[in-house]
Every structure is written in structure tokens, then in C-alpha cells.
């Protein structure tokens, strides 16, 4: 049996067009590769701190995969 009050609580407001810009900027875009790279970068920093020997060129470009800032077209918003 449906409980009306409880059912009503499950409904959420829909985002309006005025909120589109912040919605785009706050998109969580991390995928599995980003998670893996984040862990590897953390490991490299930890290795430097603890003196663990990690090859200097090992995944040296990882930092280029930092989160990106997206451009929102003005004409659209």
C-alpha cells in the first residue's frame, strides 16, 4: 500500500535552466582511469616521502589528467 507522504518525499525538484551553469561545473566526471591515476599519484608522493625507489619516468604524465574545467556556451544559457 502506498504511503502518500512518504511517496511525496521521494520526488525531487527538477533543475531549472538558470541552474545549468552550476550543474555543468559541478559534474563529477571521474571515471575508473581517474581513480586509478589518483591512487598512483598519491603513491608516488608517498614514495618520495618514505624514500621508496620508484622509477622517475614511471607514469610521469599522470598530472595532465587533473579534473578539467568545462566551458559553458553563453548563448545557450
Amino acid at each position: 500500500m502506498i504511503n502518500f507522504e512518504e511517496e511525496l518525499r521521494r520526488y525531487q525538484p527538477i533543475m531549472e535552466v538558470e541552474q545549468a551553469e552550476s550543474a555543468i561545473r559541478n559534474q563529477d566526471l571521474d571515471d575508473m582511469a581517474d581513480v586509478a591515476l589518483g591512487i598512483i599519484m598519491e603513491a608516488r608522493e608517498e614514495a618520495a616521502r618514505l624514500g621508496v625507489n620508484v622509477p622517475a619516468d614511471f607514469m610521469q604524465n599522470a598530472q595532465q589528467y587533473a579534473p578539467q574545467n568545462f566551458e559553458v556556451p553563453d548563448a545557450l544559457l
Partner: peptide
């Protein structure tokens, strides 16, 4: 009918692939 969610996905898509992206048609 969730237009803003749609726009969000399309804008991100175009930023990830600015060239030859069919999303240009929608936008």
C-alpha cells in the same frame, strides 16, 4: 523532460570532443 540534465551531458560531451561531435546538432 529533464532539459538541464540533457544540456549538462551535451555540453560536457562537446568539451570532451570538440570536433566531429553529433551533439552539435542537438545544441
Amino acid at each position: 523532460g529533464e532539459t538541464v540534465q540533457a544540456i549538462t551531458q551535451w555540453v560536457v560531451s562537446r568539451n570532451l570532443q570538440p570536433e566531429e561531435n553529433p551533439v552539435d546538432t542537438y545544441l
